[in-house]
Design a protein around this nucleic acid. Structure first.
Length: 881
RNA sequence: GCGCGGUUAGCUUAGUGGUAGAGCGCUCGCUUCACACGCGAGAGGUCACAGGUUCAAUCCCUGUACCGCGCACCA
């Protein structure tokens, strides 16, 4: 048995976390058994990138998954929470390159592909180890034996096969088109990886003289004068009256000086700039389209790394594109062709990983024509897949309706090689090399082309049979297109269930989108800003449970979170509160794990907490069904702190210490039963402290993890009912009286240790025990009953009667002030109610129950006001005596 | 430009068609035998603004402003 000596005064997470986690691993409770007869519940973890370490976003995300998993286990499901890691092709390559430059002083370009990849694999080993450790420190109950990596041999094979399958269906093709090119990483990117950013630049007004009439010219507004050498034409709107006479004529390109045609195209906006657009088909998407239709020559004047490639123009040739822009302005000025320049803020695409300005570039790449888009839209619209919060459905719909072919090839070393083999310009798409003379396609696949198979290629056949489709996906809305939508498409296209039933093929039934975690200034957390706290440091400081609970409590569904460390501190404090509630209990001996409080005589306080416990179970159930985890956390926090500790324990304390006797056992049984429920409810949120307390106090079996989730049993309490509603209402009255009395004494006797007496003119009879509790909670030695109002004492009106503080009133003014203040508050309410209750229209239209309720409220307020006014009169009469 | 969120106490935020809640911070008082990671009391709010619906609006509707996000861009 524990004593207060063997039960530390404060919860010390560091002392227990690692030990408990090892126990959990040994017990193999996290391991999912596909041949179990239990119903299944499954989640696949969004695989963290191996680029870095965990962020608070991961903490939130994985805590929610852990809550779902742990709760499901307690509810009797066979749970698979499948963890893994993502190779994150370009992101990792960029990270490793930076690392090599910075710490090893090695230029990655001097390394061979094999040498480089060897280093990336080493990087992968060390980083993945660290990330998995972090997840374990957080308490995640994932099935680590099944940890997958997107470049595992089996998984890589699956990726290649997916490519081959789609290729043979004609959905993957090779094409030369406009793509997003990152000059920094020198690779193509998909539309989704381009981040539009607003930048402040200039709009340059440039003159293009007419070829046969150099005194006349057309003025073009452009942000990119460095692309002038690539101009193939000028274009105006066919109906633009200003330029009718120019259509079909030729203008002179400023440099290199050459005549280019003036064409008419409806895609030119006459209202923008001067209404004249320069057409550079090689460097702009719209220009490319226009150029193709008008059969304009394509002049590509940029190299892969963003330098000007125009030997005819030595002044610009070889310059970086931004240097070239400056130089072009100088050139135009000196030629007298720069009319003006205006500051201009516009949107430019940046590459997500290298943060470089994207070049629209014509390039030959592999593309995927998305299959099953109609079906992918329908499964969400028909709620076969449900989004939480639901408004993401609109975003999803918009994307899928405007979907464009996916550029899936990357000029990156780290990634899945494309299963295509080349010989003399011919290619074959297949897994194995057709022969030594065939060269493998040098490109790799977009990382997301592997991730979109994650929901099922991580499972073997047996596992898939039991656990696919998964129940929930928990992820961030920032990857709704990159990942979520594509996974839906993959599920529908590849049919992992081997049937045609879409219900069996979708990757998940529900998607929970977390909010983004921002710093206290509302900025996104990022490595470059250095505003992302290290989860491990927070765990060390506040415990894993403190971090989990603190973060969760402030993360409402679909809302961004403004992070403050004090919130994590609150989480820690909560764990400590729970800990100390149990520490209180051990003073009265061992707990009864099979407590049945309703079999014993109980005080009104015990009945009250039992009722609230049952009511809380309903609120909790609703919160979980709506995936409102923060609401669930708030409900539990309030219940533990305000109801269980501040009211029940505080009241029971006096009962157990001084009154004992008949309700003593009932009080302990109530405590034990309630705490057993609380620990189980809280376990998914704060697994360590609940497990520790469960074991320490011997509430049940060796681990809390598979104890039943309390629910039906509590509904029974409400049904029977196993508490007396009248007794519970008396407890409420006592608590209200306590607040009123403390309020009064704080005015006159702020030192709580100074024992005082109260007098009471009772409206309601209360038991000896209730009186003892009342005395204890207000710090009084006694409360004497009186029949006649003592005129000279401070008074407060309570649900059980008029309460007096027997002190010689010295400061009449301050007492008058106190009463006045109380009165004005009450009168405001009274007026409101009166207005309502005398308004004919309200009386005829408002619901009957409401009117009754208001009448009751008014009665109470009227009485309080009457008492206080009488008191005020008394005081005034004494004063004037 | 279109779409989606948000605007509540000094800060971070819950919340509901009918008296606005919490935590932190602040002020005051407490080593009250579970807890100072605590206990008690208190100050602090025209619930962004303007209309509308309603007997009744912080909540529902419309519009405005500001903040954030997404999509599309017009060079």
């Amino acid at each position: 048995m524990h004593t207060e000596e063997t039960f530390p005064k404060a919860y010390e997470p560091a002392a227990i976390q690692d030990r408990l986690y090892r126990e959990w691993l040994d017990q193999k409770i996290f391991h999912a058994n596909p041949s179990s007869s239990k119903p299944s519940f499954s989640i696949v973890m969004p695989p963290p990138n191996i680029t870095g370490v965990l962020t608070l976003g991961h903490v939130l995300n994985n805590t929610i998954q852990d809550i779902l998993s742990r709760k499901a286990r307690m509810e009797g499901y066979e749970v698979l929470w499948l963890p893994g890691l993502d190779h994150a092709g370009l992101a990792t390559q960029v990270a490793v390159e930076k690392y090599l430059l910075k710490t090893k002083n090695t230029d990655p370009r001097t390394l061979s592909k094999e040498e480089f990849l060897k280093i990336v694999w080493e990087w992968k080993e060390s980083h993945s180890k660290r990330i998995l450790e972090q997840l374990q420190k957080l308490g995640c109950s994932a099935d680590w034996e099944r940890t997958r990596f997107t470049m595992d041999p089996a998984y890589s094979k699956a990726v290649a096969r997916a490519f081959i399958k789609l290729y043979h269906k004609g959905l993957i093709y090779r094409g030369k088109r406009m793509i997003n090119w990152c000059p920094a990483s020198q690779t193509a990117l998909s539309d989704e990886e381009v981040i539009p950013k607003k930048i402040d630049g200039f709009l340059f007004y440039v003159r293009y003289p007419l070829a046969d009439q150099p005194s006349l010219f057309l003025t073009v507004a452009t942000t990119r004068p460095e692309t002038i050498p690539a101009d193939s034409a000028l274009a105006v709107h066919p109906e633009d009256q200003r330029y009718q006479q120019f259509i079909g004529k030729f203008c002179l390109r400023p440099f290199p000086k050459e005549p280019i045609p003036v064409i008419a195209d409806t895609r030119v906006d006459p209202k923008f700039g001067t209404g004249v657009l320069k057409i550079t088909p090689a460097h702009d998407t719209l220009d490319f389209e226009i150029g193709c239709e008008h059969h304009l020559p394509i002049r590509d004047i940029l190299t892969a790394d963003g330098k000007i490639n125009c030997p005819e123009l030595p002044a610009l040739h070889g310059l970086d594109r931004f240097e070239a822009r400056k130089k072009s302005i100088e050139l135009l000025s000196s030629l007298g062709l720069l009319e003006s320049q205006q500051p201009y803020s516009h949107v430019v695409g940046f590459s997500e990983r290298a943060d470089a300005v994207i070049e629209p570039r014509i390039s030959e790449q592999w593309f995927l024509r998305y299959p099953k888009t109609k079906e992918a839209l329908e499964v969400v619209k028909d709620k076969i897949i449900t989004f939480f919060p639901a408004y993401w459905e609109k975003v999803y719909e918009h994307w899928i309706k405007n979907i464009k072919d996916w550029c899936i090839s990357r000029q990156v070393w780290w990634g899945h090689p494309i299963p295509v083999w080349w010989k003399n310009g011919q290619y074959i798409c297949q897994e194995e090399s057709p022969g030594v003379e065939w060269q493998r396609d040098p490109d790799t696949l977009d990382t997301w082309f592997s991730s979109w198979l994650w929901a099922y290629e991580t499972m073997d056949e047996e596992t898939r049979k039991k656990f696919y489709p998964t129940n929930v996906l928990v992820t961030g809305p920032d990857i709704i297109f990159l990942w979520v939508a594509r996974m839906v498409i993959a599920g529908l296209e590849f049919k992992p269930s081997l049937s045609d039933d879409i219900y069996q093929n979708i990757p998940f039934r529900k998607v929970y989108f977390t909010g983004l975690i921002r710093d206290r200034l509302g900025r996104k957390m990022s490595k470059s800003l250095g505003n992302s706290p290290d989860p491990l440091e927070l765990i060390q400081k506040y415990g894993a449970d403190g971090l989990r609970f603190g973060l969760l409590r402030i993360a409402p569904q679909g809302q961004d979170i403004r992070f403050e460390e004090s919130q994590i501190e609150e989480g820690r404090n909560f764990c400590n509160k729970l800990w100390n509630a149990c520490r209180f209990r051990i003073r009265f001996g061992s707990i009864n794990p099979k407590a049945r409080p309703w079999d014993y005589p109980r005080s009104s306080f015990a009945q009250d907490i039992l009722r609230k416990l049952a009511q809380t179970s309903i609120l909790l159930k609703e919160a979980f069904e709506a995936f409102e985890f923060n609401q669930a956390a708030i409900i539990l926090y309030e219940f533990v702190w305000n109801e269980f500790c501040s009211k029940f324990i505080e009241a029971t304390k006096w009962e157990l210490t001084f009154v004992s006797k008949e309700t003593h056992q009932g009080a302990l049984e109530t405590f034990d039963y309630s705490m057993s429920v609380l620990l189980r409810w809280l376990h998914p949120f704060v697994p360590f402290v609940t497990e520790e307390l469960w074991q320490r106090m011997a509430f049940g079996h060796a681990t809390i993890q598979l104890e039943p989730w309390p629910n039906e049993e509590l509904q029974e309490i409400l049904k029977k009912p196993l508490y007396d509603p009248h007794a519970a209402s008396i407890a409420q009255a006592i608590f209200e009286t306590v607040v009123a009395a403390r309020n009064l004494r704080a005015q006159y006797c702020p030192n709580f240790n100074q024992k005082i007496k109260f007098l009471i003119k009772k409206d309601k009879e209360i038991s000896h025990l209730e009186k003892t509790v009342l005395c204890g909670l207000v710090g009084a030695t006694s409360i004497l009953s009186i029949d006649v109002r003592p005129p000279k004492m401070p008074l407060v009106s309570t649900p059980i009667g008029e309460l007096y503080l027997p002190l010689e009133l010295i400061d009449f003014e301050s007492e008058k002030k106190r009463i006045d203040k109380e009165l004005s508050k009450l009168k405001k309410d009274q007026l409101l109610l009166e207005k309502r209750l005398t308004d004919e229209r309200t009386l005829s239209k408002a619901p009957k129950e409401k009117i009754e309720q208001w009448k009751e409220e008014k009665k109470v307020i009227d009485l309080k006001i009457k008492r206080l006014e009488e008191q005020l009169e008394h005081i005034s009469s004494i004063q004037t005596d």
